[in-house]
Computed example of a mutant assay.
Amino acid sequence: MLKIQEIRELIKLIDQSSIDEFKYEQNGEKITMRKQVKGAGNTTETIVREAVQAPQAAPAPALQSEPAKAEAPSQPKEEAKGEKESREGLHTITSPMVGTFYEAPSPDSAPYVSSGDKVKADSVVCIVEAMKLMNEIEAEVKGEIVEVLVENGQLVEYGQELFLVKPE
């Protein structure tokens, strides 16, 4: 059976190649990966893992994984330009990983920060959960939180903007 790291490496290799479909079978387990290009550069990878039913063996459940599809912004050019100008001079705190955004240490706790709160460079502003690990995200700069850009419990991508901070 392939390990998760080996599967990840296969996904990267297939994504970088011109191969559209890859099948692998070993010891009764079968892995199929398909790559479909939709639009300009959006890639959807589908991994299907299933056990080939052998006599006196129960079939293993199938696992399908599809990354979220990015949607193109539907803003008029003038609005986007105005938004860019309004962000001038602001520091953006981005997600260092893919995971789930949490604004508080527990569901019944108050959020770490809200718009208008003052933060220090080492102030924890949120948690991003990745693979059951809670990663505290720090403000990185001293200043005031201008805007929280994501909702509690929302899935975030690597590099996605989380907060806007007005540096002091």
Rank of each mutant, 00 (worst) to 15 (best):
3 K>A: 08
7 I>D: 01
7 I>V: 15
7 I>L: 15
8 R>S: 10
13 L>N: 13
13 L>D: 14
18 S>K: 15
24 Y>S: 08
25 E>S: 11
32 T>N: 10
34 R>G: 12
38 K>R: 12
39 G>V: 05
42 N>K: 12
42 N>D: 14
45 E>P: 06
49 R>G: 07
54 A>S: 13
55 P>N: 10
56 Q>A: 12
59 P>G: 02
64 Q>S: 13
64 Q>P: 01
66 E>K: 13
74 S>P: 00
75 Q>C: 06
80 A>V: 06
90 L>N: 08
90 L>G: 09
95 S>G: 08
97 M>V: 11
106 S>L: 01
115 S>I: 08
118 K>M: 08
118 K>Y: 06
119 V>Q: 11
121 A>F: 05
122 D>Q: 08
123 S>L: 08
125 V>Y: 03
127 I>V: 08
127 I>Y: 00
128 V>C: 02
130 A>M: 09
130 A>W: 05
133 L>N: 06
134 M>F: 14
134 M>G: 03
134 M>C: 04
136 E>L: 07
137 I>P: 03
137 I>D: 04
137 I>V: 15
141 V>H: 09
142 K>E: 15
150 V>A: 00
154 Q>F: 00
165 V>R: 07
166 K>P: 02
166 K>A: 14
166 K>S: 13
168 E>G: 12
168 E>V: 14
